[in-house]
Amino acid sequence: MGIIAWLVFGALAGWVASMIAGTNERQGCLLNIIVGIVGAFIGGFLYSLVTGRDFVAGFDITSFIVAVVGAVILLFVLTGVRRRR
């Protein structure tokens, strides 16, 4: 995928994850993109661990779900870290 596609994909995944995690009010578009892209890496890594197969990302529904799941995990971890401080 090109860089623009990654940014759009990350923004969508981060936005959906922030709505699920309840952090949408505190995040802007840039943070949604970052959370979505990092979440895609986390989700792909976890997918590989669970299934034993390498995850090949594309612009499809499976990649989107994996990215959203990874982003939700990232947001819950970050929220937990912030609450401890």
Rank of each mutant, 00 (worst) to 15 (best):
M1A: 10
G2S: 12
G2F: 05
V8Y: 03
V8F: 08
V8N: 03
F9A: 10
A11P: 00
L12Y: 07
L12K: 07
G14T: 05
G14F: 02
G14L: 04
W15L: 12
W15D: 04
A17C: 09
A17L: 08
I20S: 01
A21N: 13
A21K: 11
G22M: 10
T23N: 14
T23F: 02
R26M: 12
R26H: 11
L31Q: 14
L31Y: 06
L31K: 14
N32C: 14
N32S: 13
V38P: 01
A40R: 08
A40K: 12
F41R: 07
F41W: 10
G44C: 04
G44H: 02
G44M: 05
G44K: 03
L46N: 02
L46K: 03
V50D: 07
V50A: 15
G52P: 13
G52K: 13
R53E: 15
F55E: 05
F55S: 09
F55Y: 10
V56I: 14
V56F: 07
A57C: 05
F59P: 11
D60A: 08
I61E: 09
T62D: 04
A67P: 01
V69G: 00
I73P: 01
L74R: 00
L74S: 03
L75R: 07
G80H: 08
R82I: 09
R83L: 06
R83V: 03
